[in-house]
């Protein structure tokens, strides 16, 4: 049984179609990245799963139960993009509040709060007001407040936005710990490198539909086969176009996509030399998530 299954989700806001039949599945214990350009429908989908948006059509199942069923969403933890904490309360008071609202009480609550303070590394600051914390500390506490009741499925909306690399690393360590304990995670992010290096699978949506889903290898294989990108550094910036190469104006770098690098590379290097240039450096890359995203959506993620 899949922890989360979204089938043919549709949602319109007036004349705008936010979701036009999105389907996706979250596997047990996996970390799934949900990617898409701005306005693609990511937030609407996450809010629909969280119960904050009513679908016009389609269904959402959580642990095999329809999400609308009473108590079905109890297995869900939601970590919003905003720092949704009370600045005038201490971390302990915030955690106790959200723990109670998720049904915890008594020893279970104090145990959960103790765990969360340790998990976030905020034990020493547990009696200070949250408004005095750094951005990274608030982010960690923001995540803890959403997972305090130890949900089986965690939705994270941009959990690392605006934090320094050190805090980001700490946040991913925390997420890894959650996965180890059996939670399945769905996160939205604009950080392609994070999605590429940290997530098991990615789902890319655009214009309210899924345009690609799978592991990075599967997506690259599907879109680019065995093709590789070659990046050449020349001795000087070319002033005229070079056949078969993409150039950056004024730059010494030149790129080309090769179907079979072993066969095609010698001919390419020969053409460069014939044009009067020397190759100072050469790198061969498998296309990454950026290339996949661009190929599927026609846009850079940041656009």
């Amino acid at each position: 049984m899949k922890p989360l299954r979204v089938s043919l989700a549709e949602k319109r806001f007036g004349d705008t179609t936010a979701l036009a039949g999105v389907s996706l599945e979250l596997e047990a214990g996996e970390l799934l990245a949900l990617l898409g350009p701005n306005g693609a429908g990511k937030t609407t989908l996450v809010r629909a799963i969280a119960g904050r948006v009513r679908l016009d059509a389609g269904r959402i199942e959580l642990g095999g139960r329809l999400a609308e069923e009473r108590g079905a969403r109890d297995v869900l933890g939601v970590v919003p993009q905003d720092i949704a904490l009370y600045g005038m309360l201490t971390p302990r008071e915030n955690l106790e509040l959200f723990g109670r609202l998720h049904g915890l009480g008594g020893t279970a609550l104090s145990d959960a709060v103790g765990w969360a303070l340790g998990w976030t590394g905020l034990e020493d600051r547990s009696r200070e007001l949250v408004k005095t914390f750094s951005g990274g500390m608030k982010r960690r506490l923001n995540i803890a407040a959403g997972v305090l009741h130890r949900p089986r499925i965690v939705l994270l909306d941009e959990p690392t936005v605006g934090v320094d690399p050190q805090s980001r690393e700490r946040i991913y360590e925390m997420l890894t710990e959650l996965r180890r304990e059996g939670a399945s995670l769905l996160l939205t992010t604009h950080q392609l490198d994070e999605a590429e290096s940290r997530c098991d699978r990615v789902v890319i949506i655009d214009h309210g539909t899924v345009v690609g889903a799978g592991t990075l290898s599967e997506l690259v294989g599907r879109l680019f086969g065995g093709r590789r990108t070659v990046v050449l550094t020349l001795d000087r910036a070319p002033e005229m176009p070079l056949p078969g190469l993409e150039l950056e104006p004024g730059e010494r770098t030149a790129r080309a996509m090769l179907g079979d690098a072993v066969d095609e590379l010698p001919a390419l290097l020969g053409r460069v030399r014939a044009a009067g240039f020397e190759v100072e450096d050469l790198a061969l890359h498998r296309p990454g998530l950026g290339a996949v995203f661009l190929a599927l959506t026609g846009r850079e993620l940041r656009e």
């Binding site: 969280a50 904050r52 869900l76």
Partner: peptide, 13 residues
Amino acid sequence: EAGTLERLLTSRL
């Protein structure tokens, strides 16, 4: 505005 209302409404409350 702060987002805490969103969080409260995704709880059992």
